[in-house]
Amino acid sequence: MKRKMDEFDLELSTIVGLEELKAQLRKWTKGMILDKKRRAIGVDLGRRKPPHMAFLGNPGTGKTTVARILGKMLSSVGILSSDKVTEVQRTDLVGQYVGHTGVKTRLKIKEAKGGILFVDEAYRLAPINAGKTLEFGMEALEEIMSAMEDEDLLVIFAGYPEPMKRVFSSNEGFCRRVTHLFQFDDFSCRELAEMLLIKMSERDERSRMFGFRLGSCCGVEAVASVIERKTSEAMRSRMNGGLVDHMLNNARDNLDSRLDFEASGDELFTITLPDLEAGLELLARLNLK
């Protein structure tokens, strides 16, 4: 049991920030692991119900990443038979004509069977305006609600906190079935800087930054200061972790543009603080500020 908890802690430690959320998840996970021990010694705890959840937060706050970690953990303790996470949005579930939505939604539920069905922007299934769009969205939601009685499927609804209230009130069985709500807060400037340094330290050959390094002046405090000066709170709230990827890609482009063909050695691979600053300035010029 300790090994499983340590593995879960290690996975959570790769996520920057979200300390309150991680504390909630650790407490909840420990309880599930202990329940497994209780059952192992013959205590009947009744039917094991899937812990369906709602993840509330802005884009880029780590909701999908946490879902994947949960999939691994729930599979390792036997609550789910697979660690797969099937991500869907409204367009994956809602059809264009009568009878189409049910078929599309059931196919996605079947695909997710054994693991997690992650419904992103779930509030789009309960739009404000009435009409066929509303009916089809509600049809998809009702299909998912029915599938949540399955013992080998976990559903996670994700989206902005305020619009998600429409989902809570749109189906009377929602709050009864979705028993765990988690808030994903926006990242601070320092947390975004920490995330940037972690990304640059990873050795992922698929990354566009593979083989590059940060200059000696690019410490956490210096990078956080650049982010604070060159972005607005609204921009950070809108992008969160996505801001780091744009910042790094633009910084590499800036490095290429300022080097001449006689450049050699470390300067070919070193991202400097001015490169990072230029990367954020480009985002501002694209009206993302």
Rank of each mutant, 00 (worst) to 15 (best):
E7W: 02
D9E: 13
L10W: 03
L18R: 15
Q24W: 07
Q24G: 04
T29I: 08
K30D: 05
K30H: 10
G31M: 14
I33A: 15
K36G: 15
K37V: 11
I41M: 13
I41D: 15
G42A: 11
A54K: 02
G60D: 02
K63E: 01
T64A: 08
T65E: 07
V66L: 14
I69R: 11
I79M: 13
L80P: 05
S82H: 04
S82E: 06
T86L: 00
G99W: 10
K104T: 07
R106D: 05
R106S: 09
K110V: 01
A112W: 02
K113S: 14
G114S: 09
G115T: 07
Y123S: 00
L125Q: 07
L125D: 02
G131E: 06
K132N: 12
G137S: 09
E139A: 08
A140C: 11
M145A: 10
M145L: 14
E149P: 00
G159Y: 00
P163K: 02
K165C: 00
V167M: 12
V167P: 03
R177L: 10
F184L: 08
D186I: 07
C189M: 04
C189Y: 13
E194C: 07
M200Y: 10
M209K: 03
S216V: 10
C218T: 12
C218V: 13
V226K: 05
I227A: 03
K230Q: 12
S232M: 06
E233Y: 01
E233W: 01
S237H: 13
G242W: 07
L243C: 11
V244L: 07
A251K: 09
L255M: 15
D256K: 06
S257L: 13
F261Q: 14
F261S: 15
A278T: 10
L288M: 15
